[in-house]
Computed example of a mutant assay.
Amino acid sequence: MAQAELKKRRRSDYNFHLEYRTRWSDNDMYDHMNNSIYYFLFDSIVNTYLMTHCALNPPISSQIGLVVHSHCDYFAPVAFPAVVDLGLRANKLGKSSVTYEIGVFERGQVEVKAVGEFVHVFVDRESRKPRVDGMGGKIRGGLEKIIASEKAKL
Rank of each mutant, 00 (worst) to 15 (best):
M1F: 11
M1Q: 13
A2R: 12
Q3G: 09
E5I: 07
R10G: 06
D13Y: 02
F16P: 01
F16M: 03
H17Q: 05
H17A: 03
Y20V: 15
R21A: 12
T22I: 10
R23E: 02
R23V: 08
S25F: 09
S25G: 14
D26M: 02
D26H: 03
D26W: 01
D26V: 00
D28R: 02
Y30Q: 15
M33F: 00
N34L: 00
S36T: 15
Y38H: 14
Y39V: 12
F40Y: 09
F40N: 12
L41F: 09
F42E: 05
F42G: 00
I45D: 00
V46Q: 02
N47C: 09
T48W: 01
T48V: 13
M51P: 03
C54W: 05
C54S: 11
N57T: 10
P58E: 12
S62H: 13
S62W: 08
S62F: 07
Q63R: 06
Q63P: 03
H69A: 11
S70T: 15
H71W: 08
H71E: 08
C72Y: 09
D73H: 13
Y74W: 14
A76W: 06
P81Y: 05
A82V: 02
D85M: 12
D85R: 10
L86H: 08
L86W: 04
G87S: 10
R89A: 13
K92H: 11
L93G: 01
G94W: 09
K95F: 08
V98Y: 02
V98S: 04
V98K: 03
Y100P: 05
I102G: 05
G103H: 02
G103T: 00
G103Y: 04
G103V: 04
F105P: 03
Q109W: 00
V112K: 01
V112P: 04
K113Y: 00
K113V: 01
A114H: 05
F118I: 08
F118R: 02
F118Y: 15
F122D: 05
D124N: 15
R125H: 11
E126M: 11
K129T: 14
P130W: 04
P130I: 03
V132A: 15
M135C: 04
G136D: 00
L143A: 02
E144Q: 14
K145D: 13
K145N: 14
K145V: 10
I146A: 04
A148F: 11
A152K: 10
K153M: 11
K153D: 07
K153E: 08
L154N: 12
L154M: 13
